[in-house]
């Protein structure tokens, strides 16, 4: 920033200041979200969204202050890589979190994945039982699957549709 800026310089400095402050606020918002949200997946929301915008605003501020054309391509590339990697990492963490049950089911108003997971687990157990001992009568299979369904809540870590 130039101390005694006039005209266009003053405008650019002012815009830069706003961008930097809002960008910093976004990162602050992400930090508050990480602290205050109750479970892993809501925290992933906080970790992904405000941070992407915050980075964008800070990069835009850098671009405005550098006044060199060659800095823009690298800033754009930096942001595009951010856009490409953030959803993937959020997805991987969210998926691992769901599979290892790092979530509070009481905070979910609906969970449409759970039914699918249970169905897949029951089917897999039935297949396993059939494969290991075909002499077991059908009813025993059903009872077996039912018992396993009860234990899906346990920390066996084996639930989840086969990806």
């Amino acid at each position: 920033m130039t101390p005694n800026a006039t005209g266009a310089d003053a405008v650019i400095d002012a815009v830069t200041a706003v961008l930097l402050i809002v960008g910093a606020l976004m990162s602050l918002g992400a930090a508050i979200g990480l602290l205050r949200f109750p479970d892993l997946m809501s925290r992933m929301h906080a970790a992904t969204k405000p941070q992407v915008l915050g980075l964008f605003l800070v990069l835009a501020a850098i671009g405005l202050q550098m006044r060199e054309w060659w800095v823009w391509p690298i800033l754009v590339v930096a942001w595009i890589f951010q856009l490409l990697t953030v959803p993937v990492s959020a997805h991987m963490v969210g998926r691992a979190g769901y599979r290892t049950k790092h979530l509070h089911p009481e905070l979910l108003s609906t969970d449409e994945l759970e039914a699918v997971v249970l169905r897949a687990a029951v089917k897999r157990d039935a297949e396993k039982a059939e494969g290991s001992d075909s002499a077991i009568p059908r009813t025993a299979n059903g009872g077996n699957a039912g018992a396993n369904r009860g234990s899906v809540g346990g920390p066996d870590g084996s639930r989840g549709p086969s990806a």
Binding site: M26, G33, P38, H45, P50, G54, T110, E112
Partner: peptide
Amino acid sequence: KVVAASFQVMYLAVFRGPSVSNAVVA
């Protein structure tokens, strides 16, 4: 929408925090 999302998440983080209600939707 990215801007809207960021402000929404920030609002929820500051004012709703632990009591936020979520869902998994197919």
